[in-house]
Nucleic acid binder design. Structure first.
Lengths: 233, 233
DNA sequence: GACAACTCTCGTACAGCGTGCGAGTGGATT
DNA sequence: AATCCACTCGCACGCTGTACGAGAGTTGTC
């Protein structure tokens, strides 16, 4: 078992930010803007350089390569999640708020969903969230490995529920199809599946945003109930 | 509300496969092999052409563009999932087997995880799975929108749990880091988070594959329990 | 047999990508 | 004044998806 080389920004020391205009933070901030505007495919070192009035290759002084940059912006979005103090609001509310917050963050930065399957979340912000989640589930009464299992179950649910949501909003993440077009499309492909046809006739496609919210809540309550049941035994 | 243009292979008629050697099926099959060997980044039209002893641009006769090709291979993996008949094994076992099967399929084709957040699952195989899932949850006793909510909850959980698993296996999806390297890495980044340090000292990193399996089961049971509870009320 | 139409292949070309390299610039130190 | 260092960036390489149009091979029609 030889393993395989691995590298991550978090294992390296950052360049000291000496110059005023350009710095790792500036670059990450600009990259985040570009990603929000144009999606993952819209981020290129050249464009990013242009946005900072710099040559494309100048950025490589602060960042080893594009993957490192992605690790940095990825952790940045973890910093946007709100992690309530379970000592104040209780574990179930804390987790519920965290879950909704995670969902909102991903919907706001759809490109971040693509990174979840590519980068391990090792940055300080991700660590902070993980740490608080652990603390919360311990406070709930979980012990040993179950603490981590409960945490994985929750974040798994949230990610798995939310990432496909972004797929329906187009690759750029900004854009909604109207109900008729959608219904038409699904009708065409689902014609020979009886239960799917039934589904179309529900008004799922008329107000997708609201329905998705309902769906998310339904699942979240189920997951929390399921976890709570593990505590009882 | 103007909507936005959308296109999908499934809305178009395929080229009739007249020639013997080259066809849409052949191309999809070769693409699938290439993806399994080299990951999402390893699939290029030129390589794929070479694999089929064809010019890169010849493929465009059968497939409008690379995105369409990805839609096709994506649906192909949905076809690998086993959907037991709930009338035979009961709804809970059917769903449980399906969940494990989904996980295995994604672990086998890590690149498919990346597509989940990018393409809506509209192909015939995905439709078939969705249809059977619907049927199963209806048989369980869910009604109306809850049928779809339950289905989304399940697939959400499975995807969200499994996709990050592939992130730890390297971008190509083939490769394991050894326990020491991993522990070292996390120790370095997690040093100042007390609960995370505690986590490291559990033997999470010694047999990750087994632990992940345990974790998946833990969460799955929780989700199913939670869903079952919704039926009771 | 001749001509047309249609199916299919592919070479070339273009714009874009990440990034290695090495030359160049400006300020601080000796 | 000379040296060093932090930093910038133009150029070039090999890669990408794919538009375009020329050609080959088969088939259909007169």
């Amino acid at each position: 078992m030889t393993g395989k080389d691995f590298s991550s920004v978090w294992l390296r020391e950052p360049r000291k930010a000496t110059s005023p205009g350009r710095s790792r933070e500036e670059i990450v901030r600009a990259a985040l803007e570009l990603l929000d505007e144009e999606g993952l495919g819209g981020l290129s070192m050249r464009k990013l350089g242009a946005k900072l009035s710099a040559g494309a290759t100048s950025l490589y002084w602060y960042v080893a390569n594009k993957d490192e940059l992605l690790e940095l912006v990825y952790d940045e979005v973890w910093g946007e999640m709100s992690v309530p103090d379970p000592d104040v609001v209780g574990w179930r509310d804390a987790i519920s708020v965290l879950a909704h917050s995670m969902r909102q963050v991903i919907l706001r930065h759809p490109w971040a969903g693509d990174l979840i399957g590519r980068l391990p979340a090792l940055g300080p912000n991700a660590m902070w969230v993980a740490n608080e989640t652990r603390r919360t589930f311990k406070l709930a009464g979980f012990e040993g490995l179950d603490v981590d299992f409960a945490g994985s179950t929750l974040t798994g649910y949230v990610f798995g529920m939310t990432i496909p949501e972004t797929a329906w909003n187009g690759a750029g993440g900004n854009g909604e199809y109207d109900a008729d077009q959608m219904r038409e499309m699904v009708r065409k492909t689902a014609a020979q599946y009886p239960d799917m046809v039934e589904r179309i006739n529900l008004d799922v496609y008329d107000n997708p945003t609201a329905i998705r919210e309902l769906c998310f809540d339904f699942g979240l309550v189920s997951v929390l109930d399921g976890l709570e049941r593990r505590l009882a035994t």
